[in-house]
Structure formats: structure tokens, C-alpha cells
Nucleic acid binder design. Sequence first.
DNA 1: TCCTGTCATACCCGGTAGGTATCACCGGGG
DNA 2: CCCCGGTGATACCTACCGGGTATGACAGGA
Lengths: 287, 287
Amino acid sequence: MDALETRELRYFVAVAEELHFGRAAERLGMAQPPLSRAIQQLERRLGVSLLERNRRGVSLTGAGEVLLHEGRAALDATTAAARRTRRAGGADSPGGPRNRLVLAVKAAGSHELLQKLLDAYAAEHDAAEIEVLLCGICEQEGLLRDGRADVALMHTPFNSLAGFDSEELLTEGQIAILPAGHPLAARKTLSLADVSDVPDLPLARWPRYGTYAPGPGPEIHDQTQLAQLIALGRTVAVVPDSARAWLWAEHTAVPLTDAPPVVTHIAWPAHSRSLALARLVRTATCL
Amino acid sequence: MDALETRELRYFVAVAEELHFGRAAERLGMAQPPLSRAIQQLERRLGVSLLERNRRGVSLTGAGEVLLHEGRAALDATTAAARRTRRAGGADSPGGPRNRLVLAVKAAGSHELLQKLLDAYAAEHDAAEIEVLLCGICEQEGLLRDGRADVALMHTPFNSLAGFDSEELLTEGQIAILPAGHPLAARKTLSLADVSDVPDLPLARWPRYGTYAPGPGPEIHDQTQLAQLIALGRTVAVVPDSARAWLWAEHTAVPLTDAPPVVTHIAWPAHSRSLALARLVRTATCL
DNA sequence: TCCTGTCATACCCGGTAGGTATCACCGGGG
DNA sequence: CCCCGGTGATACCTACCGGGTATGACAGGA
């Protein structure tokens, strides 16, 4: 039983995502016929049919769905291996593994916590160099998985901690951010039901585990966009308390009574064995 | 930047484990020169030196250590993808993903819990078929990681749950198992200090995260061997309470007052999306 | 009916993975 | 001191196969 080659996985994932051999081939920078053949070989080698070739386009079989999921995970692990090895090698000469960590943080996250963490860690005895990688709303998971980051600050219930090790750092309540002029902005407190049901102010939606939940509200990609939309009176958002730091004059924050608390974790790949990482985690939990 | 190929990872892991090109090549079923060349190409492509070629044999650089770890993880993910896809495909014709789960259980584990779980699940409306895969003392993690199993019963603090999702099922205390004739066997209770310090009865050692801690006691591979060694008066073991089920007449069990409790979890790969698995987990937690 | 868009097939070429033979190097023993 | 055994590296060749181009088969729509 021969193992899958990275190339085959890359090809299959491309086809499975595009559901179209021509487009997938273009994305891969190759011609369509060799791609067709490669997928056929893959199916033959696995002894399993992965794609349903319909008269118009392609669709995934059950096994195809499985390979799409597992293949993505395997590809991420492979590119992570390459990236982390390259980084470890850069400073091989000083002896011992490279003293440098990439920390992924949501750009809109609490500046206060991050600053405290960096300061406390920098004060440690021969601390590693920390490279802060600011990312979008929900990108930390991917960054950790494919090795672009070594450690991340994540926020449940927005991020999923599945597959990572983590430690709890901070718990905070949530607030609603409304356009300053809106009637609800005058209230002392609000409930989730209050803000979910406003006809003229649909609730903003963010990616959760990579996809957007259906709903009438706008899809949020970054914090600036959200702030603008609220200021324009187009939406209302439910966000952690620390978001008060970036409110505009056109915004009003109202505490929510029944929103689930947001917990900030420090998270890292489960199999990590780096000493520098362990020290950073210890610093973080002792803040 | 081109991705690592599975083949290259396989080659490197073999060399890194053997620390010897000739033996590694033999293990891979190929000649030594192409292997040397492949590793050189890999180093050039990564722009990193992975192996220190000494006058006699080879040793790993820092980057090499990283690639060994990460590469193993990536290879596991890749073979898991192949295995799970093959299994999913076997019953593709009936439509929908294959209704079959492989459950890894330590052979020496509690029969009672397992039986209850299987019965309860079998009673469910159109339950999946469960294949029970009995394994050695600490093999569940590897089985889950490389796709030979879909779900496992694991026991903290013996197994590591790192990288898996899990739910707690059962907590139990620990007991010491002694040769029936030993003086300590007459005691009503014991402490960890009592059983750690017996000169003529060194404490048995099991693999923890794959390796054995150093110590005078015998290394335990399976439960039968342990039972025999205790009966022969060669060792004493600290085990979960449910191990009383397999005691011999030559054994005596004494409760421990200060041993950490053993928690049985049901665990599965973090990215799993199978419906059958979710149902099994729900059944297990509702036992 | 033909045209269009899809994936599969036929065929060719070049790069490269792998094999064999050999070298370069070092340590140890007669 | 020199040669031998064992290490990894180099040289060179071959054959396979990954990829390209051209074309086919097939179904839907005007």
C-alpha cells in the first residue's frame, strides 16, 4: 500500500474545491488533461471513486468529502513542517533551535492584554524574539495549522480550539455596539433578543469556523469595516467588552445581560515541543 | 516556494530515525546513493542543513529535529487521509458516508464501561457498525493520528489528549497491586511514597507519551506480563480501580490514598466531521 | 442540426528518481 | 605504516512518468 503524495493531495483538493477540472488546472498552473489523469490514478490507487462525473461538471462522493477534509489537514501539516523547519534552520548556527516565535493575534483584539504579555515576556531571562502577526477576524486557526504561526491568542466561542493545546487567560462580558442615534442606544442594558430582532438594524455576521452563518446582516471581514457600517446605521454588533477601546464618536456601547462570556486563550499546536513556547505560555498564564 | 513531497518526508524520517544512510535505504527498499541525493536536494530546497555528517554516522541539527517531529505529524496526517478515504469509499454505493467506526481501546481497559457503551449505542436508531480495535498500553494516540482508528477510549494521565477533542466519561481512584504474600499487602491503605520506596519491589514502569521513564522497575508492555511479574513478586504496580477485574489469586489490591485519579475519556481527531462519531460520543456521555 | 462546454484519450517529450560502479575519507589493527 | 572495512558522496545511465498539445466523446441548448 503506497502512500499518497503531496502533489496528488494538492491536485485533488483543487478539483474538489473548484468542482471543475479546467478551473482547477488553471489554479494549479497546469493543463487540464494531466490533471484528469492524475485524479484517475489517485482513484485507482485508493480503490475508491472520489468524484461523480456528471454531464455538466463534477460533484464529490462520500469518500471524496472525506479526502477533501483529511487532505486539507495533511497538506496543512506538510506545509507547516516545511515552514517551521526553514525557520528553525535560519539560526541553526548559534546552537539549539531558533529563538523566535510567531504569535498570531486578531488585529482588533485587546491591545492591553497583548502589551502586558509582550512586556512580561521580554523581561524574562534570555527571552525568545516574538514576532507579532496581526491577522483578520478568524484567521488564527489556519495560521497555526499551516505553520505560519507558532502560537496564537484565540477567543472562544469565536475561534475553535479543536486540535490545539491552550490555556485560559481572560474572561470578559459582551456589549452591543449601536449607531449613536438609534433608539436602543438609549437603553441601560440589552438582551440578545433585543438586538437580534431589530428590523432596521440586522445583526452583523462574522466567519465562524471559516464560513458565514446565513442571515440578513452584512458579512464582516475586519474591524474597520464593521465600525464604518455601524456608524452608517446599517448594522449592530455584539462584541467583547474590550472592544470599547476602538469605539467611534458615532457609536454607543450597551452592556448585554445574557450574552455568553468571551474567553481569551493562548493556544499552540498540540505536538509542539519548543522550550521558548513553553516559557511564553507560562508567562501568559501568570500575568 | 514548492511544497515538501510525501516521499521526501518519508526518506528524511527514515534517515533521521536510523541516523545511518545505509540502514535507512534498506528500510526504504532502495539503494543508498539515491537516498543521499534526495536528502541533499531536500536540504537545498529548504535552504537549511538537516544532518551533521560526522566521520562516523550522522546526527541531527536543530532544524533536523524540528523536521523529524513535524514530518512525522505530516506523514501521519497523510496516511490517515488515505486510510479514512479508503474506508469511506468501501460502502460508497449505498449512498452517504460509510457507516462504520473503528474504536481503539486498551485491551486491559475496563470491560464494563466498554460493554455498556457498545450496548447503548447499538440500541440507537440506525447505529453505525463499531469495530473494536484492542491495542496495547499506550497505542491509542498513534492509532487515532494515522487513521487506523476513528475514536478511542483514553485514560489521563496515562494518555495525552493533546490534539484530540474529547469528553470525560468516568473518574476512578487507583490501587496498588502487590504480590499476595508481601508485607505491604496486609495494609488497609497505602500512599504513593509507601509503594515507591520498597527496595525489593521496584515500581513497574509504562510508556508515557511513547517512552519509558527511567527507573529500576521492569518496563511493562501488556497487562498479562504485568500480572505475571507481580505474581512472581518482582514488582508492584499502581493501576486504576477497575483493574480489580483481572486480579489473580496471587495478587492483593490495596487502595492508594494519594494517587491522582484516572479519568477515562472518549477522544477523536479534532477535525472529525462524521455524524456517526458525533452520535457515539453523545451516547457515551449520556451513559 | 450544429455549437459549446465538459471531461477523457492518444501521443510525445524531458526531467528526474532510482540503479550500479566508484570515489573520498577516516579509524583501527596487523 | 599501510591497508582494510565501513561511512557517505559522486558520476553516469536508464526508464518511468509527469506534463504538454491535439483531439475525441458526449450531452445540452439554440
